[in-house]
Simulated assay, not measured.
Amino acid sequence: MKNLHDLHILVVEDEAMIGMLLEDVLIDIGCKTVEVKTSVETALEYIAEKQVDFALLDINLNGRPSYPIAEELNTRSIPFIFLSGYGAHGLNGAFSHCKTLQKPFEAKEIEKAVGELLVAN
């Protein structure tokens, strides 16, 4: 497991308040960097150019699914967690096995989920 202090986290979230909350939580638990992107395109550009160790992905980005981002993360063996107001029920078949946090969530849930996924990877 990587140390949280070494992690470069990508958050893909189209709701500004949730993005800021996630950024604050991840910085508070000791992640090295947190970058928030709001669209599929900007997230894919970021993944292509920067180091990403872990990602949190809102399933629905302004009406568009974040699955292209998840596919790219899978290709690069980068772990991620989906975020959704619908919980795991919002996932399609190819990603139905993925870890999902249901909105609204508490800071401790984010910390726990990140820790669990990092131990597993």
Results as ranks from 00 to 15, higher is better:
G93N: 14
I47L: 13
I47G: 10
I18N: 12
S84N: 07
N121S: 07
R64D: 06
A43V: 08
I78A: 09
A94K: 06
L83K: 06
N74T: 02
D6E: 15
L83D: 03
G93L: 13
H89P: 00
Y67I: 05
R64G: 00
A70P: 02
R76D: 01
V36P: 05
G90E: 14
I69E: 09
T75K: 13
C98T: 08
D14H: 14
V36D: 03
P65V: 04
V36Q: 08
D6I: 03
D14G: 12
T38V: 03
M1T: 12
F95S: 00
G85C: 15
E41Q: 15
K50H: 13
S77P: 00
N3W: 01
A55E: 02
I9Y: 05
I29N: 02
Y67D: 03
A48Q: 08
C31M: 11
V119C: 07
N3M: 03
E71Q: 13
C98A: 12
L7K: 07
T33Y: 10
G19M: 13
I110F: 07
L21R: 11
E111H: 00
K37M: 15
A120T: 11
K50D: 11
A70G: 01
E45K: 04
R64T: 14
L61Q: 09
V114P: 09
L101I: 15
K2G: 00
P65N: 05
Y86G: 00
F82D: 01
F54C: 05
Q102H: 10
Y86A: 15
M20K: 07
T33V: 10
G19I: 14
V114A: 08
L44S: 11
S77A: 01
V12A: 06
S96A: 15
N92Y: 01
I69M: 09
A107S: 07
E13F: 12
H8M: 01
A48F: 00
H5Y: 07
S77H: 02
M1I: 09
E23H: 10
L21E: 14
E23V: 00
Q51G: 05
K112A: 12
G19A: 15
V34F: 09
E15N: 06
G115H: 08
L91E: 01
P104D: 01
L101Q: 06
E23I: 00
A94T: 05
V40Y: 04
L83M: 08
K37A: 11
S96C: 05
E71S: 12
T75G: 04
C98Q: 06
G115K: 10
M17E: 15
N3G: 01
E41M: 12
K32H: 15
E71Y: 11
A113W: 05
K99S: 13
E45N: 09
K108D: 05
T38S: 10
I27H: 01
C31T: 13
N60Q: 03
T33D: 14
C98Y: 09
L73G: 02
D58F: 04
